[in-house]
Computed example of a mutant assay.
Amino acid sequence: MSSPGKRSGRIVDQAKVMLHSALQKRNLDLVRNPFSVQIATAMKWLELGTVLDIGGNIGQYGASLRASGYRGRIISCEPLSDAFPLLAKRASGDAGWTALNTAVGSEPGEIEINVSANSYSSSVLPMTDAHSLAAPGSEYVRAEKVPLVTIADIVASERVDAATTLLKIDTQGYESQVLDGAGELLASFAAVQLELSMVPLYDGAQLFGDLVARMENAGFGIFALEGGFADPRTGRMLQCDGFFLRNDLMPDASGRF
């Protein structure tokens, strides 16, 4: 005869299986260690006090870090006229969160950005069929001219200490140009998070291997990866997020520098 404790454990396990199955049927899932929690944990361990959020959209990234326990400074940049007000509203109630209405690239000035129907797929670069066919509803619907600044500009104007900062870049294929605008400062950042594409989703975008090699040449190693955008027709992963840590900050097996 089984004990009450064992029966209770089986009920909990069965409930987990049922919940997992229900979520999978809706193309959803629960994970033990969400990527935002992993990042917040790493930032706490590294004692990083600032996140430079390039491609803030409506504030999803900043909000997920806050929900995961991060309490440091957030500087979010978003150029689009429809997304920025939502980002600004989200940041307005948070004294540690600054919203900047600008695009970020290789040099200051002005640039035209293609606006996607779903907003978050918007990019300076032309979208390929590989993207639009795998994500119906992501097609471009208009274009906007927006101001353009560089990472170096933001670091100077916002008095950012790169050595205690995570640079997060989610610019839909425009990551390389954003890195260009950091110049020699890139090697000073403690950590960098990039969107990495396995196939060309935007014309002219650098792919996974190129960006990983660039980060390695700048003195960074891969700390964590998160699977992202996949083609629902085939299951092939098209894009993921890579969290890079400066090599001199990388922990050893014991968790020490």
Rank of each mutant, 00 (worst) to 15 (best):
G5A: 13
R7M: 11
R7D: 07
S8H: 11
G9V: 07
R10W: 14
R10I: 14
D13Q: 14
Q14R: 14
Q14E: 12
A15I: 13
A15L: 15
A22I: 01
N27D: 09
N33Q: 15
P34D: 12
F35W: 15
T41M: 09
T41A: 13
M43K: 11
L46V: 03
L52C: 09
I58C: 08
G59Y: 08
Q60H: 10
G62N: 12
S64A: 15
S64M: 13
A67G: 11
A67T: 11
A67N: 14
Y70T: 05
R73K: 14
I75F: 06
C77Q: 04
S81G: 09
D82I: 06
D82L: 12
A83P: 06
F84I: 09
F84M: 08
P85E: 06
L86D: 03
L87K: 04
R90M: 09
A95F: 01
G96D: 10
T98L: 11
E107Y: 03
E107L: 03
P108H: 02
G109I: 04
T128K: 01
K145N: 14
V146E: 05
P147C: 03
T150K: 07
A152P: 07
A162M: 06
L166N: 13
K168G: 06
K168C: 10
G173Y: 01
E175Q: 06
Q177S: 09
V178M: 04
L185T: 08
F189R: 07
V192A: 05
G209K: 07
L211A: 04
R214K: 15
R214F: 09
M215G: 02
G219E: 05
I222L: 15
E226F: 00
D231Y: 01
R236F: 08
M237V: 13
Q239C: 09
D241A: 07
R246Y: 10
N247P: 00
D248W: 08
D248M: 06
D248S: 13
L249M: 12
L249N: 02
M250D: 00
A253K: 08
